[in-house]
């Protein structure tokens, strides 16, 4: 199976996942409503005289993205497990690489859309002067989300085989989100404070290293999860 074939399979799987999602919409709207609720609760869960909106905003943003994203990831392999559709995938010429990339792509679009819809609300709620720095913030969001989704896709394939998958996923996944989330919060803090770019490079390279390493590690290990 060549790289073109792998890409074709990945696109087919991602398109299928998004079509299913578009049909049911439950996961999308639950994640979105959840995100808005978390943003709101975090806003009020502080002493407004001691902690300013801007101090709170970066942490609030990433806690929200993390938990809303995890809601979406939980169902990523439930779909394949339901009628053993995953057997249908495995009987086809699709390689584990193609299947993994497809699932990651589908999840990335899903989590990405939830993030992009809640981002304006975040800017509005927390009154963050971000418009000029938006490109930089989107880059950070893209990087952290890619790392998060790659590891999350692998773990979602693991926990779907257990009985309490919705509890198991956060327990296994959150330690792995610690480095990218801390990096993303630090970066977001500097971006909203309009700090010069060279104050970003350290965390940015750490984040990028994490994403590259864990993306390929998850890709390699996925094959061991898929076999039976």
């Amino acid at each position: 199976m060549g790289s073109y074939e792998t890409l074709r399979v990945a696109l087919a799987i991602a398109a299928k996942d998004l079509l299913v999602e578009q049909r049911t919409k439950t996961a999308f709207f639950s994640s979105l409503v959840f995100a808005i609720l978390v943003l709101t609760i975090l806003y009020f869960a502080r002493d407004a005289t001691a902690v300013s909106d801007l101090d709170l905003a970066p942490g609030a943003l990433w806690v929200t993205f993390t938990f809303a994203g995890m809601l979406g990831l939980n169902r990523a392999f439930l779909l394949e497990r339901e009628n053993r559709a995953v057997d249908g995938l495995r009987l086809s010429p699709a390689t584990p690489t193609g299947i993994f990339l497809g699932k990651v792509l589908g999840n990335l679009v899903f989590v990405g859309v939830v993030e992009l819809v809640s981002l304006p609300l975040f800017i509005l709620f927390y009154d963050v002067p971000i418009w000029r720095q938006l490109g930089l913030l989107l880059l950070v969001i893209f990087l952290a989300t890619t790392g998060f989704v790659a590891v999350g896709t692998l773990f979602s394939a693991i926990v779907v085989r257990t009985r309490f998958s919705e509890v198991m996923l956060p327990v296994l996944l959150l330690p792995f989100l610690f480095p990218p989330i801390v990096a993303a919060v630090q970066l977001t803090r500097r971006i909203v404070a309009l700090r010069p770019f060279d104050e970003l490079t350290g965390w940015l390279s750490m984040l990028a290293a994490f994403v590259v390493i864990f993306f390929f590690l998850s890709l390699l290990l996925f094959e061991a999860i898929l076999e039976e």
């Binding site: 590891v151 693991i158 610690f178 480095p179 390493i213 999860i225």
Partner: peptide, 24 residues
């Protein structure tokens, strides 16, 4: 098989956690 996957992932993760907190 599944726990081995987690074991390998965790081994790579811990240096990242260390650097993250150290920088923090």
């Amino acid at each position: 098989r599944f726990s081995a996957v987690l074991g390998v992932m965790a081994l790579v993760l811990v240096p990242f956690i260390h650097v993250t907190v150290y920088w923090f």
